[in-house]
Design a protein around this nucleic acid. Sequence first.
DNA 1: AATAAAGCCAACCGCGGTTCG
DNA 2: TCGAACCGCGGTTGGCTTTAT
Length: 249
Amino acid sequence: MAMDAMSSAVLQGAWRKGPWTALEDRLLTEYVQQQGEGSWNSVAKLTGLRRSGKSCRLRWVNYLRPDLKRGKITADEETVILQLHAMLGNRWSAIARCLPGRTDNEIKNYWRTHFKKARPSRRARAQLLHQYQLQQQQQHRQYLHALHLLQQQQQEMQMQLQENQQQQQQQQQVMMMAQQSPPEEDQAVITTVGNMNSMETAECYCPCPAASAVLDLPLPADDEDALWDSLWRLVDGEDGSSGGDSGEY
DNA sequence: AATAAAGCCAACCGCGGTTCG
DNA sequence: TCGAACCGCGGTTGGCTTTAT
């Protein structure tokens, strides 16, 4: 059985890919002028083009068709695209049918470029991250400041306690000198007071309302999407209602 | 001036629906 | 009726150009 051009190309995996040359465009255009649109798989057989039918159709529809409009999308066309997309969603071919001379691919690309709010680019992400780090540093400084104040407070309390302890010891000594031989119970009392003092000192390091308020500073969620959402709001200053896209992207 | 990043668009891929032998 | 071929669609990718750093 003789092998035709297409079968041969398929078996050899020899379909050409990538950008079309002027010669290929001419061959395809001549084919369509003679045979009309359709039967794309026979293009390779009849013209010798090493392109798949799919590729030929796409090239014709998106680039070679004579009724295609060249140039940028106009403001009016943009309005139509926005309105139709709001009604139809991503049905690009349906939208394209309402815009003579424009292809679905063109409209799709235009939409994605101009209206789709994509995940931030690497540069944008770096900027967002920088802003975020500055915010974190500021929070950290606030935290350290609060901690410093807390420690000062604790040191003052400790010094106060030590002074009290010294005063008590001095009083004890005075009593001892007066009585010459202190009873054992009093020793126990001194020890107990000492322990209580140390307990009070220790209590100063326990979380107090001020400290827990500092520790309750909002920390970033691990969830990446939530993080990016908040970062977007940070940059845009938006309330989350803007964007207008139906959430499809 | 060099280079990295973003913008843009043509082309490819995979999938589902339709047609035809 | 069924399976292969064909077609069309939407999503994705690759590469060239422009812009920003």
